[in-house]
Amino acid sequence: MKALIAGAGRLGSQIAQVLAAAHNDVTLVDIDEGRVAELEGHLPVRLVEGDACEPALLEHAGAHTADLVLATTGRDEDNLVISLLAKRQFDVPRVAARVNEEENAWLFDRNWGVDTAIPAATPRVSLIEEATGATDTVALLRLSKAGVDVIETAITPRSRASGRALADIALPAGSVIATVIRAGEPTVPTPEMRLRPGDELLIVSHAATEQEIRAAFQ
């Protein structure tokens, strides 16, 4: 899948990390030159600096061949413009957009090119089906064509994985840790990294269930 994400804040960069870990072709766009420079070398994605509200920039970033566009900026008006351009001008099959202000939620519909609205209160986003009955470990994202789940789990002081190195944790077969979110920022996991309370992990798996992932960490 080819994904274009507009907005390299916490949400956008986390989704980029997850999609890239699931072997998707990801481009992340942000208007802030400093933010792009900060992420350079830390995410396995293509980074593009510029205003995603500009059709020429979206075309340069690959919107004309994207399977998925996500508008995750901090401004609702920008997310709506990006969504409309993606759907109407570039005919992107699937468009998701973040809703920052609850009172604007009614605008985020097909009239503005939005297939999936992402409420700001949602801590993570399911791009195809939203998780229900959320606990500390929830299935966030099902890439139905590839049969891939992305599962989130949070480390607490009572988690048996707290203080342990990633290399010492036995993951279910067909699973890999995509990213460790620490202090709000996605971090590339390394075998020697020791988990701390407050860490959030996103695990990409082709076969494991939520319960199996939970058992490995909790």
Rank of each mutant, 00 (worst) to 15 (best):
V81K: 01
A52K: 11
T27Q: 14
E33R: 07
L57F: 08
E102K: 00
E77G: 10
V81F: 03
T27F: 14
G74N: 01
R94G: 03
A56I: 04
W106A: 12
V36H: 05
L85R: 12
N100R: 08
Q89G: 06
D78V: 05
I31M: 04
D91N: 08
V26P: 05
R46H: 15
V69N: 03
E102G: 00
H23L: 14
L39S: 02
L28N: 12
T65F: 07
D76I: 07
Q89M: 14
S83F: 04
V95E: 02
V114L: 03
L28Y: 09
V99S: 02
G41V: 04
C53M: 13
I82F: 04
E59P: 05
R46W: 12
A61N: 07
E38D: 12
P119C: 00
L58P: 10
L57V: 09
E77K: 11
D109Q: 08
V92I: 09
D67N: 14
D30M: 11
L80W: 06
W106K: 10
L68T: 12
R98P: 00
P119N: 00
R46K: 15
E33D: 11
N24T: 15
F108A: 01
R98F: 01
A71Q: 02
G34S: 13
D78Q: 08
H64I: 06
L85Q: 03
L68V: 13
A61W: 11
L58I: 06
P119H: 00
R88W: 12
T72Q: 01
V26W: 11
D32C: 02
N79F: 08
E102Y: 00
V114P: 01
D30H: 09
L107Q: 14
A56L: 14
P119M: 00
A52M: 10
R110H: 04
L39N: 03
A86W: 06
G50Q: 02
A61F: 04
K87C: 03
F90V: 14
S83G: 04
K87P: 04
A120Q: 00
E33Y: 10
L39T: 05
A22P: 08
A105R: 04
D30N: 09
H42I: 10
T116L: 13
V26E: 13
A61Y: 01
L107Y: 07
A86H: 07
A96C: 09
L58D: 11
P44F: 14
V95D: 02
L80C: 08
E40Y: 06
H60Q: 10
R35D: 07
L43S: 04
D30A: 11
T65R: 14
A117I: 02
R46V: 15
R75Q: 07
R88D: 15
L43C: 10
L39P: 01
H64L: 06
W112P: 06
L107C: 09
R46I: 15
G34D: 11
R94V: 08
L80K: 06
A22N: 13
E54Q: 13
R94E: 07
A52W: 09
H64M: 08
P55K: 13
V99Y: 01
V114Q: 10
A86E: 06
E54G: 05
P119Y: 00
E59G: 13
L68R: 13
A120D: 01
E59R: 15
